[in-house]
Write a protein that binds this DNA or RNA. Structure first.
Lengths: 152, 152
DNA sequence: AGATTTCTCTTCTCTGAGGAAGAGATTAAT
DNA sequence: ATTAATCTCTTCCTCAGAGAAGAGAAATCT
């Protein structure tokens, strides 16, 4: 086998660092856990209605409205009327605001430097992995969220 | 340049998927945001005192005690007396409990399958990246947490 | 030894996020 | 046209989690 002997440990450490950084960044922007969660959903799946967002986050309608209120007030999303159904609203992510970019910039810079050290083939491998892993995590996440809240 | 034309988008999508999955998993285990945050700190930095953990999480002593109470009750950490200083307590992570492993298993399985499809050199590249990126994110995260809570 | 500092824990209070129920507006069904 | 269903939002209530202040135990300093 060509994996490192402590592959699991390395990978776990990597995941923890990514999660930790993401949460620290969110906290620095005064984003609550659910807010970050919702933003990631919107990042992955694009604009959707409040109802859909509420289902995805597992919130009832009241908190969903206030969640969108917070995100809109902070400039992360925008509410637009649905042209086809005037009851509906479309919540669409707006270009990442300056504060979030500023907070995430140091990490992006470091990652950029790391990536710059790889050859063309290596980069191809890495981005192939990013693409596949993103899909895998997204599937696993949706399965988690959509699955049974109570265990077996 | 050998990066894909939409490298930024791919990477952002990847990060969102990882974050989303991590939070969904935590939610499925009834772990609050701070609890997950603390667990990741312990995963990265190993055992430490409540005081240290409180500083890292940005909590005062009261909530820190209760945070550790929660984690201990759920079986994620263990309190031990510090042999060198009997005022102190050492909070050490305990092997991940079954529930968390069960929740994270599907994703680990998928990632394992993806990794199994790469050659030896490709795996070397990937794990090299994991190692470097983990350090980068850890540094950036600590800088975020340790930096000024209020912007300039 | 006595006083001060350090560290953890306890208690009380409070803010903020989430659930429940219902109103208002619009679309679909009869 | 009238009724029913859908979607978002508002209001009220509840509760977990965080801060503040102080107690108790142990180490350090004078």
């Amino acid at each position: 086998m060509s994996m490192p002997p402590d592959a699991g440990r390395i990978y776990r450490r990597y995941l923890s660092a990514v999660l930790l950084h993401g949460q620290a960044g969110a906290k620095a922007c005064d984003l609550g856990a659910t807010d970050l969660y919702a933003l990631n959903i919107l990042e992955l799946s694009g604009a959707m209605t409040p109802g859909e967002l509420g289902t995805r986050t597992g919130l009832t309608t009241g908190p969903t409205t206030r969640l969108i209120d917070r995100l809109e007030a902070a400039g992360y999303v925008k509410r637009s009327p649905d042209p086809g159904d005037r009851r509906k609203v479309i919540v669409e992510p707006v270009g990442r605001p300056a504060e979030l970019d500023r907070v995430l910039a140091p990490a992006r810079q470091k990652i950029g430097e790391i990536l710059a050290g790889y050859s063309a083939e290596q980069l191809e491998t890495l981005f192939d992995y990013f693409t596949r892993a993103a899909q895998a995590y997204q599937d696993a996440g949706e399965h988690l969220a959509g699955g049974r809240p109570e265990g077996e």
